[in-house]
Each structure stands twice: as C-alpha cells, then as structure tokens.
Design a protein around this nucleic acid. Structure first.
Lengths: 350, 350
DNA sequence: GAAAGATGTGCAAGCGCTTGCACACGCCAA
DNA sequence: TTGGCGTGTGCAAGCGCTTGCACATCTTTC
C-alpha cells in the first residue's frame, strides 16, 4: 500500500542502507546522493515506518507522560508545555491519565510504559521510594514536574518562597488569624509542594509571633469542591479567621464561594489568597502566587530530551523556577471596623 | 536485558508461535500449554515488545487523539473520557495538541499520524473537505466529537435543542433584547455547533417576533478573554441588551466580568446564559446548558474501538447526546423596575 | 609515488514478533 | 478399515527498518 524504504532505494538506484542514512541526515552520504534520495522519497510520498525503525534501532522516539488528572487546569497547562517541546523535537507523546487512586495503583502494578517509551515525564505525582523504584526499573530518563527525586530530572518552583510571599502579604495587611487550606491529608511525605507551602505558612506565622493551631487548618484536596468544604469546616469552628491562604487557586475559589454563601464578604470580612494564578484568578479577582506552569512543562521536557540526546543526566538535575505574588482584590487590610471582621474571632495579641 | 518471546518459548519447551498464540489468548492452544506458557512468562517478567508486534502484525494498538487545545476545560474533559475507554481496551493514546492556527496548519501539512495509529479521534475541530480528505487518506477509522462528517463516526450533542432551551428560558423570562456572543468569526462553515447554536438563537428570536440585528451579536472566540471583549463591544453599542446568550461558559464568564466592571449587575441589569456547564459555572452561579462532555469522549472512543474490532463502520455513525438547561442565578425575569433595567435600553415591543 | 586516511556505498544480519501453511494426531462416521 | 475432520503445534518467511563491517575511491602527506 504505502511505499517502503526499499522502494525508495530501488527507484533512487542506491541501497536501502544509503536511503536510511540519507533520510536521517547521517554523515557519510554525498550531497548529490542525499538529494536524489530525498527527491524520490518525496515523489513516492514515503513516510518512515515507526515500527520498523523502532524494532531495528531499539529507540521509540516516544515519551510517556503520566498525569494525575488531564482535566485539571494545572495539568492541561503543563502538558501544553511538554507537548510543544516534544513535538518540535519529533517525539511522540504517549499520554497516561491516572485519574485517581485506582488508576494510580493500576498504573504502578502494570507499568504499561515498559518497552514503549524512551523517557518518561511525571507530572506532580507524589513519588515515594516504591514509585521511584518502579520508574527506575524502566531504565529510561525520568523527568519530574513539581518534585525532585535523586537520579531524576526535575523542574519545580520555589514553593517556600511563593508561600512565604503570600503569607507575608497577609501579615503585612495586619492579619494574624490566618487559616490554611492545605492539600490532601493523605498525600505521602514525598510530595514537597504541599509540605513546603505549609512550612512557609508556619514560619511566617511564627515570625509574627502567632502560634499555630489546628483549628485554623483544613484539607481541601486541591479541588474546588474540596476548598468549598474545607472553608465550611473552618467557618464552623470556634475561631473565625480574618484571612485564608489556600494552597491552590481552585481551593481558593471554593473557599470564596463558601464565604459568600455564609453571608460574609471577600475581602472585607475575610481575605483570600490562592496559589497558581489559574486562568480564572483574574476574573475572580483573587490574590495569588503566580507560577510559570507551561514553562515548567517545557523546561522539564527540554531537560529530558537533552538527557536522551547526550546520554548524560543533566548537570543540574533540579531546576527551580521563580514565582511572583499577584495582588488582586481578594485580599485587604485587616478591617478597621472590629464589629465586622473580628466579631467572632478575637485576636490573641495586638 | 529484558526477555523475549523466544526466551519464553525455550523455557516453556514450545515454539515461539505457540507462545505468541497462548499469550494473546488465541484459540488452537491447549489449556495446559497455555497455562505453562503464562507461568513461564510471569516468572521471566516477560512483556511483549510493541515494536516487534506492530511490525509483524501491522497493527499499532494506538489511537491518535487530535485536540485543538489540551489546556482548555472542554478538551481536558473529553480526553478523560477517551483515555479511560482506550486504556481499558489496552490501546495507547498518542496526543496531538494543535494549539492554534500555526499548529493546525503544520499538522495537516505533515500529517504526523501516518503509519503510527490504528484510528484517530478528532476533538471539536472544524473539518472542511480538505481536512476530511487528509484524514481519510490515513485509511483508518476516524472518530469525531462535536461534528459529523460522512464516513466518520461522530458523537455530538443536539446544539439546536440546547441553544433553543437557553433562548426560550430567556424569552420566557420576558427578555427580548437578547445579545449573542458567538464563536470565532473565522470558523469554517463545517463546524456545526456554533452555527446550530446561532440558528437556534435566530429561530427563538423569530418565534417571539423579534428581528435579528447585528448590533446584538459579537464574536468571542470561545475563550474567556474573547467573551470579555465581546461583551465590551456589545455594551458600547447603541442598544443595550437585557440578556446575553454566550455560546460557551468561558465566554459567559468573561461577559459577566465585563458587565460587572461596567457597573452593572448580573442578573438584575443583564441576564447571562452560557453553554457547557463548565466546572466553574456552579461557582459563578451561571445559568447554562449542560452537555455530557466526558461521555462524548467515551462514547466516541467506544464507537471507534467497535469499528476497529469489527472492521465495519458503525451502523449509526452520528450519535447525539442530550443536553439539559441548568438554571442558576445569572438569569432573572426582565426587571419589573424600569428604572433599573431598561434605563438605557427601551424595548421596542411589549 | 606509496602509505595512510577520509569518504561514500553496499552487504547482510539482525530487531522481536505474527501468521499461513503443513503436519501429526486422535476421533468419528461410513 | 479408511477417509475425513477437528485440534494442537511447529516451520519459516516475513514485517521495514538500522548498523557493524567490508570495500572501493579519492585525497592527503611526506
């Protein structure tokens, strides 16, 4: 049906070997021969057969991309970055969507990437020792977005700096009763972003002499619904916060909604700060920490391709990209009017 | 390094042919032999080499998924549906993100799927004759989401019914000055959703005796920013609408923002209705037309796999899934108070 | 002017599977 | 008994590439 390398060879009057070399731009082919081969290939509409090439060379020119949820904003953005780099380099992108714990377990049980990719890109997945081992067993370069593991290439942001900026912003505005909506409680220790962001929360609180209390923390699972619910819990407790720092914008969106449903105002009654700079953050006027999401994907993919090309793991295996606080309307100075904002939540210190 | 089919054959004391048959569950292998082969394969941790298998069989067990923008909510949802079906059937998913016109052109110029997929799934892409021809040239089953083309399998929603419901809702509320935020103006004729939705807009207007005017239409490119801008145009014109029907939720979000920035209220001054039931629609209290997005992907993928398995194109090649109007707070009866809602926009008829 | 490289090309042996065909049985019907 | 059939297995020829090696020409270099 479609022509093969042999067809091209015959018509060009050279051996298949030469065609292979000519078409791939390898050296040791004279320019005149190469031109002839290319022309014949064009005329025949020849397209290399990946199966044949893969079998012979052992290289798939494919990168597996493992993502927790394709349908979440963050991952869509990262994939966009990854895809553009891979595509430009002529690599195929094999997508694996875990979609929750069941899918995740199945993935690690079967490791469906075996024998089908040259490298793997893992997006924002908590990687424990077992998972790291499973990936290492593939014996291909592994790239990570959002975490760092010994022996893998990783790109992430400075979560501590980002969260610190968010928290400082709130303390500068006078807030002391600051709640935290964190990620899932079940997230393994190895996933640093939630831990780092929480650590920054604690540190900044400490730096202004406020003691941490579990009453001001709730888990939101990094989803809007989770944020909504977490905020509900927070409002149901004895101490009402004057500000909330959510570890992601989606959770912040949910929180804002709960706040408003409770008849309170943002930011007058409660300031809200998120993390990500989600597309909708601007629309919802959410103060947040912007992180370069597409770039993280693109950078990680580039590192991975370099590794693949050179055979050497990157010299600097853990790149850290900067974040930036974006101040919008969801955060405001601690209200001057005690009747409104501190009614149910007397601050311990001045 | 990793063991091959021959290794398994040797250890099991059978021929490679038998191993191949046994492992793939083909008939004409005795149960006892099959059991032995499977056991040996397990012990060796044997994993079939896709390259070898593909080359020999001519089948890739891979489906190409072509998507305009992975990072848009709608496509993330559809991919989720597609992925789960493909994964369950043991198919690989090769992702192609077009990401705008340049990418789109490059895609059709190169047709990078040639020789690497058994079937293709095209998500919400305007398909003209040239594009259809390009896909047909691949000589593999093609599945479409959001459109219908002769000879392809397609899953879509009843855009006319959905948009009609949205528009009726507004007319029942008493609105007559209803603006339309449509998709891009440059979208080819062959992409029916925008056309159908617009058609319904015109029909419902007509049914209540209102004449169409271009003054009440603006293009929003199916993005939030586009909706924002389109609404700006609409507000800048002579006739101010009392309601807006946006062809997508994201455009509706943008429109709501522009409305509020202009110092007007939703729904008191302007009702807004969207289309999709985006994750955020509930949060933003947007009245909209819900469409089953994940299901469209899953259904289309299922049709495609059936086609692949049977060799026969589906008997019913164009499935239509239902929509449902979800009424929320962004739409309200035409205000009883003329001072508020009709100030700048006197209605022509009662 | 001969030896040593550099350069361009071809040979042929794979890479790891699949599958049409042949074959060896055991079984049943005539 | 014999022919025919169903069943289980093996043979071997690919599938369409890549690549180490050999070889034939040209250039250099001294």
């Amino acid at each position: 049906m479609s022509s093969t390398l042999d067809d091209v060879a015959r018509l060009a009057g050279v051996s298949p070997a030469t065609v292979s070399r000519a078409l791939r731009g390898l050296p040791r082919v004279s320019e005149v021969t190469r031109a002839r081969v290319v022309q014949v290939a064009d005329e025949l509409g020849y397209v290399i057969s990946p199966s044949g090439s893969r079998l012979a060379s052992g290289r798939t020119h494919t990168v597996g991309v493992v993502v927790p949820y394709v349908n979440r904003w963050f991952f869509g953005q990262v994939i966009t970055g990854v895809e553009s780099v891979l595509r430009a380099a002529g690599f195929d992108l094999l997508l694996y969507n875990l979609g929750g714990d069941a899918g995740r377990d199945r993935f690690f049980a079967e490791m469906p990437l075996r024998r089908r990719v040259d490298a793997v890109m893992v997006l924002s997945l908590p990687i424990g020792d077992a998972e790291a081992e499973a990936f290492r067993a593939l014996r291909v370069p592994i790239g990570l977005v959002g975490s760092a593991v010994e022996g893998f290439a990783g790109v992430r942001i400075d979560d501590v700096a980002g969260a610190t900026a968010a928290m400082r912003h709130l303390t500068h505005l006078g807030h002391r009763e600051i709640a935290l909506i964190s990620g899932g409680a079940d997230v393994p220790m190895h996933f640093t972003p939630p831990i780092d962001r929480r650590g920054a929360y604690l540190d900044v609180l400490d730096s202004v002499g406020v003691e941490y209390t579990p009453d001001l923390e709730a888990a939101g699972d990094f989803t809007m619904a989770g944020g909504e619910q977490a905020m509900g819990e927070l409002l149901g407790r004895s101490r009402r916060p004057t500000a909330v720092f959510a570890q992601s914008d989606e959770m912040a969106f949910g929180a804002m909604r709960t706040i408003r449903r409770a008849g309170l105002r943002v930011p007058e009654d409660i300031s809200v700060v998120g993390f990500d700079d989600h597309d909708m953050a601007d629309l919802l006027d959410l103060t947040t920490v912007r992180q370069p999401v597409v770039e993280q994907g693109a950078t990680a993919a580039t590192m991975l391709l370099d590794w693949l090309a050179s055979g050497e793991p990157p010299a600097e295996p853990a790149k850290v990209l900067p974040t930036r606080l974006i101040v919008r309307g969801s955060s405001a100075p601690l209200a001057g009017d005690p009747e409104t904002s501190r009614h149910h939540a007397p601050r311990p210190e001045a």
